[in-house]
Design a protein around this nucleic acid. Structure first.
Length: 271
DNA sequence: CGCCAGGCCTGCACGC
DNA sequence: TGCGTGCAGGCCTGGC
């Protein structure tokens, strides 16, 4: 799920049900996520009002006034709003119970997700400190990427997934963005010029924007439904399409391993 | 059974 | 000795 578009879609879907709500309590059924869920989470959050639901990179941030609840969905996490008395299913590790009688429920089979409490500003948290500007921040531009990749021999696809360089992009959208920019995923980042980086930035923004738009149609699924979290099925250009024809030139899409992750690309459109 | 999966921190080896 | 860099490992469960 959770690259930036999925997290943003989650934020948009949950926001009306969560914002302005006072937290009644927190129920931790399984604290064993990527890091242990804070021991006394209920005491930390009970009685606090959720002022706003924000997002930074792939992190969801709940402004609780004086402290922030930081959520990360890892590989398999999802959040939904359910009636607080709805029986939890397997892997429903945490509920944030609201005064409305609903609960924000975290589901995460692989438990790579995280729930953290941060007093004061969330940017004080070590995990958020070194993250690159948001993709739509004007500071994130071709020059930013050009500057930070000089002398670097790593494949551009790996650096696209480095949150200190590009934030919010994971394996799927790294592949998709590189396709849109016409850049081969194995290209050494240091050998790409500023013009091509400007094009890559455009490609990243387009890719993320379209994914968020695709997710918008599934927002209702974040509330009360008992099925899948409602992450949308998008039409990808290359991701997961090894052997299938490129949507632009009909060449067979290829898959290779780069940095222990699957890379998909069109050998004709991407150089 | 083995392999794969949308993330990301940590620790190691290396070169300057 | 200290970076920055590039890798590999590890955390988990579920599906094919």
């Amino acid at each position: 799920m959770p690259e930036l578009p999925e997290v943003e879609t989650t934020r948009l879907g949950l926001s009306p049900h969560v914002q302005g709500q006072t937290i009644r309590t927190a129920v931790v059924r399984n604290p064993r996520l990527r890091w242990p869920v804070p021991k006394h989470l209920a005491q930390l959050v009970a009685g606090r009002r959720i002022e706003r639901l924000e997002r930074r990179s792939k992190y969801l941030l709940l402004d609780c006034g004086g402290g922030w609840l930081i959520l990360h969905l890892g590989m398999s996490g999802s959040l939904r709003v359910v009636p607080a008395d709805q029986p939890p299913g397997a892997h429903d590790h945490l509920d944030i119970v609201l005064e409305s009688g609903q609960a924000l429920r975290l589901h995460d089979p692989r438990r790579f997700g995280a729930v953290l409490w941060q007093r004061g500003e969330p940017t004080r948290n070590k995990l958020l400190r070194d993250i690159a500007p948001e993709p739509f921040d004007p500071r994130f531009d071709g020059h930013w990427l050009f500057q930070h990749t000089r002398g670097r021999r790593a494949a551009i696809k790996n650096l696209l997934m480095d949150q200190r360089l590009v934030c919010g992009v994971g394996n799927i959208y790294a592949n998709e963005s590189l396709f849109r920019a016409g850049i081969h995923p194995a290209t050494a980042a240091g050998r790409i010029g500023e013009q091509r980086y400007a094009r890559l930035v455009d490609a990243i923004r387009t890719t993320l924007t379209e994914a968020i738009r695709a997710g918008g149609s599934t927002l209702r699924d974040f509330v009360n439904a008992d099925g899948k979290p409602g992450y949308f099925q998008q039409q990808y250009f290359v991701y997961g399409r090894a052997g299938e024809p490129c949507r632009l030139c009909a060449s067979a899409v290829r898959m290779v391993r780069i940095g222990q992750r699957s890379a998909f690309y069109c050998p004709r459109c991407q150089r």
